[in-house]
Design a protein around this nucleic acid. Structure first.
Lengths: 229, 229
DNA sequence: CGTAGCCTTGAAGGTGATCAATGTTTGTGG
DNA sequence: CCACAAACATTGATCACCTTCAAGGCTACG
């Protein structure tokens, strides 16, 4: 396949410590797939015969609750793996989550055979997978630690986790355009609750909207204050 | 060190696919440590210079919430690893959770140096670590999927996850003696709520106590029914 | 025998869910 | 280009579930 257009993959966290030939092998038979907005990249319950690396765009990993709602487990962005962690789980295993594109998204699809042949025996790759899994778990555990806190606190923590960490002056933009619904689905709460709290924060300036329809900016200090009080 | 008394380690899930010499190397400089009831095996925030394998007994992995409660993230039983997942995270890293013994507990403590030398370069071990991490994460994700369900449902799901899976006739014992407090801390709810629901279940026979102070037995069918209604 | 940890119950109160209605935006097909 | 549907946003009213608080009892253990 032509990876010449995707130089970016060589810099992905998951391939750090690997040289180019090794990375090329790890991408044997990989295929590029493109998605529009709100398309399924993979579905929970489907046989896990491949996995993906996000090239650009973003995807949400969702689970269906018994009551019909969708719970969002993770937002996968550039360089993130989707469906990779289940590859270890022997043949016949199925995806535990669904992945849905958020806006135009391109991913590299890697067949399970490639995983078995080149990913499984590479200690470096397994360690990198480990680090990735560890990071995700830390996030979920952080959430759980706050599970007894009021929703305002949990929402604040969620927003702070999703601001761009590049600059560190007062206010920062969310690194991902999230709808209220998606925020609610991430926290496992009702949309209305999220809306009410964020309305308050928009009113008191904790959050600002530059343009009418643009991204929202967060005044980190004020947010931290409003949480502690 | 004398592993002759701990033949059991060779059968642990984490060492599956490894031959004895390799396992022995993986246990280089390991030391046996014993704990009574409610002792700290390791503390959140301490430098992560070692990790443990549970030989017998059990330990709970806990995080301290900002409001003073302890949240239980995981119950580690025989063959489980404690503090191992942070070993990858470079030097200077600290334990993200505390581990506390539940009853008399023995663990093998393995220094970080051994991890770096024998665990890190072994793809099989890294893969096994991966599987372990994956299993824990699945559990947490299951919990999160139920986060919008009423507490009865979540409590039922919790109990069902902790029954012994050996026999499958009607009623089964919990595989671990858990206090109401520990159940509450696992679910992130108030003790009183757990007590009230389990009182109801004891009254209607969904749960039975054989002796006054013995373990509790669960009527799985009734529990599933009481959840769906 | 006193303390610490756990269990239990009841009463009161609040947070967040639910329900219903309406507006807005986006995308789609005629 | 317009009409319509689908997804998202918003607001208010009501209510249930769960928390909080307070008080007391039980058991284990030094």
């Amino acid at each position: 396949m032509g990876l010449e257009n995707h130089e970016i993959v060589y810099q992905f966290e998951i391939f750090k410590n690997l040289n180019r030939p090794t990375i090329d092998r790890a991408l044997t038979n990989a295929s590029l797939r493109q998605f529009k907005h709100r398309e399924f990249i993979l579905r929970a319950g489907d046989p896990a015969e491949f996995f993906c690396i996000v090239l650009d765009g973003a995807a949400k990993l969702i689970r269906h609750s018994p009551r019909g709602e969708d719970l969002i487990m993770h937002f996968a962005v550039q360089g993130d793996l989707v469906g990779a962690l289940v590859m270890n789980q022997g043949p016949g295993s199925v995806f535990p989550v669904s992945a849905k594109s958020m806006g135009p998204t391109r991913v590299l699809c890697i067949p399970k055979a490639t995983y078995r042949e080149y990913w499984l025996p590479q200690a470096e790759i397994q360690t990198a997978l480990n680090a990735l899994l560890y990071k995700r778990m830390s996030t979920i555990q952080d959430d759980k630690t706050l599970s007894t806190s009021p929703l305002r606190t949990r929402l604040a923590s969620f927003l702070l986790r999703h601001v761009d960490r590049d600059s560190d002056d007062g206010s920062q933009a969310l690194s991902l355009a999230l709808t209220r619904q998606e925020i609610a689905d991430s926290l496992g709460v009702a949309v209305e609750s999220v809306i009410r709290i964020m309305r308050d924060w928009l009113e008191d300036g904790t959050i600002q909207r530059q343009s009418e329809k643009g991204p929202e900016f967060i005044d980190i200090k004020k947010l931290l204050e409003s949480v502690e009080s």
